[in-house]
Design a protein around this nucleic acid. Structure first.
Lengths: 239, 239
DNA sequence: AACTTTGGTTAATGCCGTTTACTTAACGTA
DNA sequence: TACGTTAAGTAAACGGCATTAACCAAAGTT
């Protein structure tokens, strides 16, 4: 039974489709990522792609997952480079690395952090009314989230930073944080998770604005402004 | 000479095109805003729209300008409602108003604060190599920027908040801030403009994440988290 | 050897943006 | 008032798009 070989071949083809789609995305923008163009580049015809994806949206979602993966790998590699340094240096490396990848891959960034993609699965899928489908993109997104969360738990274990006590958190927020913590199986105080989210909002907000050019109205080079945002985050983490 | 009447009629038609486009945007998303659909809704044929816009991108840019205008008007109205209150209440009203409009108009928000639209004018336009074309969208965007800036100048005049001295600002950033100040004709210290930009990054970053659903991975209702972001801004402004 | 599954094809439908050539009505003026 | 001009629409066509249906060959399975 060479079913395994077939599966491997199939996975390789899916990977090549994704690679081709990404190349088109980088070179000519998201609207150039058409089924026909992908097939053309691969020496196939467009309908053949339907053997691998239900439609264009699902293909794009898969690509988004790969992009998440690429970003996560990039950050992991950057962290490897400064593995010997202290936790603060590693944190700053992660922040700057995230910004660097995003600025170097604006169109990829737009796909995963810009206007959201259509959700997986057709609306009103039978039997799974609103249930999570958990596709490739979800998995890779979760892995990315884990990456920063792991950095946080490491920092917290090594040198705890000031966080609000449970009673200081608004009840509605507290309940949601508790649910998130249980859902993720994290062993951190609620205040720590809250600070994590605040830092994430700060970081991704600053990067988004810069990548999408929404600070350009004032600053041609927004890098110093981003450095200040990172300082804000560092201060909040007790650096 | 009824040239004036004709111009008025033309402006009215442009406004109706924009209104129709916006309705399609709200109801079915940006990909439903097609020239054919707009014309269909207006009882015309698609090529007629080329009498008013050079192509679809310019039509979308014009729509984006109108959306900026709508947002600015909405904020101005909210500020009117709390005109009697102190400056802090007005600031919070502006922040919450911005969030409210954005959450109530996610697709419109995406058009003006999401992945950027293609720039006006064809690439390599003769004679104006890279020069500003300054279309409707630019004007409305500038007006929106002015709105928040005016709030800042008012606050600064009424109750100055702590800002970094010129010497404390990194030289590269300082030069850019000075250029922006001169370009806009603002009479504020550089540190004040810097704080303005930092607050803007904070505010728009927080709203973007929420509108685009990028906090949903952790919180079903991100409102309390946004309230904390607004507290951050308030603290920075000495409230 | 017969059957089934996989992965491809061609042809067709109905969208889309855009261009071309043509019409019609209103406007401005000699 | 007659005449040229301009503004604002039309129909027809081109090429590209996603998607579907019908078909086909090769490989795997029994």
């Amino acid at each position: 039974m060479s079913g395994a070989r077939r599966e491997r071949q199939r996975a390789a083809t899916i990977a090549e489709i994704s690679r081709t789609a990404r190349r088109l995305l980088v070179e000519d923008g998201i609207e150039a990522v058409t089924l026909r163009a992908i097939a053309r580049e691969m020496g196939m015809t467009a309908p053949a792609l339907y053997r691998y994806f239900a439609n264009r949206d699902e293909l794009l979602r898969h690509l988004a997952g790969d992009l998440y993966g690429d970003l996560t790998d990039f950050l992991a590699a950057r962290l490897e480079e400064v593995a010997g340094d202290g936790i603060e240096a590693r944190f700053r490396a992660a922040g700057h690395g995230f910004r660097r990848w995003s600025l170097n891959h604006p169109r990829e960034y737009g796909m995963i952090f810009g206007t959201p993609l259509p959700p997986p699965g057709a609306p009103g899928a039978p039997g799974e009314d609103g249930a999570h489908v958990h596709d490739h993109a979800d998995e890779c997104g979760a892995r990315f989230g884990m990456f920063f969360m792991a950095l946080f738990t490491e920092l917290w274990a090594q040198r705890p930073f000031p966080v609000p006590a449970d009673e200081e958190i608004a009840p509605g927020l507290r309940a949601q944080l508790a649910e998130y913590r249980d859902h993720m199986g994290i062993a951190l105080p609620l205040g720590c998770i809250l600070v994590y989210l605040q830092c994430w909002v700060l970081l991704q907000g600053a990067v988004s604005l810069e990548v999408f050019g929404h600070v350009q109205f004032a600053l041609a080079d927004p890098e110093p402004l981003f450095a200040l945002s990172l300082d804000d985050i560092a201060r909040r983490l007790g650096f």
